[in-house]
Computed example of a mutant assay.
Amino acid sequence: MDRRLFQQAKELYRGFYITQPVGNNAFSFAQRQHKKIFVPPLQQGTLSDVQIGDEIVFVEIEEGVEHPRTGLKNFVYWPYQNKPVFIFDNHNHAFFFWLLGYLSGIVKPHLQLVHVDQHTDVWEPEKFPSFSLQPPPDLKEVFHYTNYHLNVGTFIKPALQLNLFSDLQIVNTSAEYGISFNEPIVLDIDLDIFAPGSSVIEDREKIRKVREWIEQAVLITIATSPFFIDQQLALHWLNEIFNM
């Protein structure tokens, strides 16, 4: 990982609130009592640094009930076996870290994106990026787009539109968990695959396949998805994945 770019990423992800109805804060904004969400700071660390915070990072209303969710204390960049792993709460931040990987020369254009999730996350964004891969975008542009235009369901199509990836493989059925890859990939994991009631195959088999794909990955992004899975449970399975 390019140290200069990572330092810039840390300066951007310093811990801040989103108070306007944009990005992840737009969901049911007019009806909500909680009008702001927190985006945690980024740090370098290991799994032990992935901890639950006490700030609300996502709010939605379902069947008339408001559900504020707390997320992570920090986003963590973990150099694992000489490959970057980024761990964060809301899934749209994957877009930023994919582009950070690209700008650092780790993610080469036209790799395959393997998206392991109980959701497809291929909703249409409100707008596509105004930047392209060539000339390389400014990291501030990527940050602003990620946080103020994308949400947890709209971050994949913009990456495909930029031609950052050659193909998208969504893994959310038992058949797709049987796929193997012979070429390098970018691996994107949503820990909500371990949420109660979401199982399409046995959890230990999921871990076995995810570990196999980790070996093929040049960069790994992992979302703890506070709205879709209890965060203590998410961190339990995160540690299980890497407890090899």
Rank of each mutant, 00 (worst) to 15 (best):
M1A: 11
D2C: 13
D2W: 09
L5K: 04
L5A: 13
Q20T: 15
P21R: 12
F27V: 13
F29H: 08
A30M: 15
Q31I: 13
K35A: 06
K35H: 13
F38V: 11
V39T: 10
V39K: 00
P41V: 14
Q43P: 08
Q43M: 15
Q51N: 10
I52Q: 08
I52F: 07
D54L: 11
V59P: 00
E60A: 09
V65G: 01
V65K: 06
R69I: 01
V76S: 02
Y77D: 01
Y80E: 06
Q81A: 06
N82Q: 10
F88C: 02
N90M: 05
H91I: 03
N92M: 07
N92A: 06
A94H: 03
F95C: 00
F97V: 01
W98H: 09
L99I: 08
G101N: 05
V107K: 01
Q112K: 14
Q112I: 13
H115P: 07
V116M: 10
V116A: 11
Q118S: 10
W123G: 14
P125D: 12
P129E: 12
L133H: 00
L133A: 11
Q134S: 15
P135C: 11
P137M: 10
L139F: 08
V142R: 00
F143H: 07
H144Q: 12
Y145D: 02
T146K: 03
H149C: 09
N151R: 03
V152K: 02
I156S: 00
K157I: 09
N163W: 04
D167Y: 09
Q169I: 13
Q169M: 09
A175H: 07
G178V: 04
N182H: 14
N182G: 12
I185P: 03
I193P: 00
F194N: 03
P196N: 08
G197A: 08
S198D: 12
S199Q: 11
V200R: 01
I201V: 14
E202C: 03
D203K: 15
E212Y: 13
I214G: 03
A217E: 08
V218R: 07
T221D: 09
T221H: 02
I222Y: 03
T224R: 05
S225R: 11
F227H: 08
L235M: 12
L235F: 09
N239W: 05
